[in-house]
Design a protein around this nucleic acid. Structure first.
Lengths: 218, 218
DNA sequence: ATTTTAATTTAAGCATGCTTAAAAATAAAA
DNA sequence: TTTTATTTTTAAGCATGCTTAAATTAAAAT
């Protein structure tokens, strides 16, 4: 029987590694919305499968095999996102959830065909880089969260976090999309909210929003 | 947790109902390649879910809800097949297995979009009819197995069974495809094999092959 | 009608992945 | 350093879907 959850664990681990290449069970549990106990459980299985190095209480790291498996899952996910968006015409804010399911059920052959049809895209619809067949990850241009910009600064959106569909719906609604120019008009220190200008119109956005939109650094 | 196997059971039941709208556990088990015990088990669950009417030892029938669920699964499967074949360019003999996985992981929205892109196809790449969104099934033109044709008769392929990939690879290899003309040159009574002409070339085919290729009746 | 054969169901058990509650280890605060 | 809080792990248990072996029912053959 094919095991979907293992693939989800690997992706989440891969996408949330810290600077030393490790991750805490805590983080995995919250990203996957399962109990810490479930994470411990799965870590043992992944370790037995040779996909992670796991020393109880000590640390979690991907093995070479685990990393390449995870990287391939990320690749599948992001190619699906581009395909759904560009070929099928599915909205920006819907492709993530759909890809989340499809990524577990598609052959490498299908993924490779879609990639070819799309002419080897480097970024998904939210600006995240797509690993190549061989595992190479395109460089992300330098960027910083919108929340870091100071009053008067402006720049173009290069990436947005895609973990919450409602967030995407919301920012689409105010005109945020990749490559769109955003100018910070006012920043309020008490709640870190800001007023920004998008397509000439002013919008008030919370610091939570601003932290999940990334601006290219020139 | 989403349950893939229930969907497989429903599809298999739906596609193998007898004239009275019933089916034997036996058939289900062999189509799904599981034990009879597994079938009994699942039938109880499907009955509890209101998807089948099940009286132990007596009979199995789909409820209205079960039938509509099953019909939708068949729809998903066949739309995926057409899409993979026509849009993604995947070979005739590969789309079945790929669709078998994808059908469980796609939203109705995605299926409907693909259907629209394909301009509402009525038949899948093997000639099987595709239920519409409302559940209506296009009429299959009258047809009979190639094995029924007599010496000298000929006709066009209107459908082939798609349960075995190797079978599809084989018949593709000898030039069988939808709408292709086939003429029966010789029929051997001792093993029911036959010699047929396809694109001017003679081929010997077993009765097993001939039983799974269907010819339009004019 | 009775026996034999075949199909079906029940029973017991396994693996997967989840849960909550309790125990153990680590990290933070006093 | 000791206490307190947090994180992580273990333990026990549940649901799903599968297996094999045994029991039951139905169908076929005599």
């Amino acid at each position: 029987m094919k095991n979907i959850s293992k693939e989800d664990y690997l992706s989440v681990i891969f996408k949330n590694l810290d600077e030393e290449g490790g991750i805490k069970p805590n983080i995995i549990a919250s990203k996957l919305v399962v109990s810490n106990a479930a994470v411990t459980d799965m870590l043992k299985k992944l370790a037995k499968d040779g996909l992670v190095d796991y020393k109880p209480y000590k640390g979690i790291q991907l093995t070479a095999e685990g990393e390449s498996y995870a990287r391939n899952m990320v690749r599948r996910h992001r190619i699906w996102e581009v395909f759904l968006n560009e070929v099928v015409g599915m909205a920006w804010d819907k492709v993530h959830d759909e890809a989340n399911r499809l990524e577990h059920s598609s052959s490498d052959d299908l993924i490779n065909r879609m990639e070819e049809m799309l002419d080897y895209p480097e970024y998904d619809p939210h600006g995240d880089p797509i690993p190549s067949k061989s595992g190479r990850m395109p460089k992300l241009k330098k960027h910083r969260p919108l929340s870091d910009l100071n009053e008067g600064e402006s720049g173009r959106v290069i990436r947005v976090n895609d973990f919450d569909q409602k967030f995407l719906v919301y920012i689409s609604g105010i005109g945020v999309k990749l490559d769109e120019k955003i100018t910070v008009k006012e920043k309020r220190s008490f709640d870190k909210s800001m007023e920004v200008i998008i397509k000439g119109k002013p919008w008030n956005i919370s610091s939570k929003i601003a932290k999940n939109v990334f601006i290219e650094v020139k």
